[in-house]
Design a protein around this nucleic acid. Sequence first.
DNA 1: GGGGAGAGATGCCGC
DNA 2: GCGGCATTTCTCCCC
Lengths: 252, 252
Amino acid sequence: MDGFVEKIKAGLLRNEVVTIFANCSVVYDGRAKSFLDKGDRIIIIKRDGSLLVHQPEGNMPVNYMKPKSSHTLKKENSIHLLKSSNLVEKEFLDVFLHEIYHVHSQALSDFEKLQLSGSEKDMSDMIYNNPGVIEKGFKPLSREEHTKYGFIDVFGYDKNNVLTVVECKRYSADLSAVTQLRRYVEKIKSSKGLEKVRGILAAPRISSNALAMLHDFGFEFRKVNPPNYLERFSKKQVSLSKYQQNHKKTYK
Amino acid sequence: MDGFVEKIKAGLLRNEVVTIFANCSVVYDGRAKSFLDKGDRIIIIKRDGSLLVHQPEGNMPVNYMKPKSSHTLKKENSIHLLKSSNLVEKEFLDVFLHEIYHVHSQALSDFEKLQLSGSEKDMSDMIYNNPGVIEKGFKPLSREEHTKYGFIDVFGYDKNNVLTVVECKRYSADLSAVTQLRRYVEKIKSSKGLEKVRGILAAPRISSNALAMLHDFGFEFRKVNPPNYLERFSKKQVSLSKYQQNHKKTYK
DNA sequence: GGGGAGAGATGCCGC
DNA sequence: GCGGCATTTCTCCCC
């Protein structure tokens, strides 16, 4: 037990990444408060000060501290206590280490960033390049003008030169997507003093309630899929090197 | 290397929690696509099938697979490849293990659930019990009636018997909180055929734009803090056992 | 640092 | 399963 504790202390001192398998209980106090009773968990402390407590099941950490937290180990009433605090964020976490099963600490070297495709941004880019997916004769305005009016995904003129706001959702559009579109349309109407501005919601699908509300406001829905969505199912899987090649071409 | 691979395989077979320190690259294909070039990372595979890839810095996993994924190890072109797939979600992740530094696998036992206080639910509960924080003479309706009209946090009658909708936010209220409140007020108005329904946004603070829009719609803001918020700063820190006692009283 | 909006959001609860 | 919504949301970008 004490050997493990020394190993953790040494890892923290050397600013390595530390993983701990332990039976512990956890108290958190910050934006909210929480308590987690005794159980076996994995604790990860990263070199930027972030800390994660993971239960043996579940995607998300059960408790965590943000980067730039500091961590100290002390013994309190014969219990080893890992105290974590972030004074800037006013957040505190105490891990009571009732039993330590395993500790590994190591310096890790990683300079890579994730390259991702298929986001909503890619979707609005696709619409700019293929305005026909919205409707025939739709002419998007340039990106520079677009930014003047705020965070609107795509906007432009329809074939009758009516100003049109397009809001994209990469997944199913919901009520809040409709009210978001409504906000943009009202903003454009008042800022440009226009009577008629069209609102279009572009998404692969829309909930029935959202569709009803959309129609109430006189807006329209366009079924549009985000680009590269589940491409694996539409063509043969590429090898790693090919994937890298393709990807770097896309993300130069 | 091969010894580590056998250790991973054995851990997966025994349905333990497996942690791997390795130099790897990662390809993801599912709702979106991603690629992460070579670097040192920690990989965690949990017994429910969830998988996390953590870089040495940052709060969030750089790649992940949801619970109920399955994982296999194979050798492809002399590279050890951890293949992870979730056929139901149509998601796929490949981890190319270029070098393995450390593997630990262990059965973990944890039956506890996080007990949390200070959520928005606690905030609306607090308002139900202390309606005076909204205003003098505010009378919340019973929880049963409330559910009939959907997901409204709190609603009731003001001292003049005008129906009032209260939307709570545990942190700073933004534009979408205002449009959410607007949606509820309009819903109640039309479903009950009422001319006047009041809308109140209760939060510790509100952004300036949100406040402007709130006033445009004739709604009001009430500064309300979520209960127990940063209680550590208002009273002496309690011991672990005391914390448990207090907490179990609250969350029996 | 605040504000606004997306996220491979996730997770919870309801129907 | 979908729908609606909170989250110790987190993260990014822009002002």
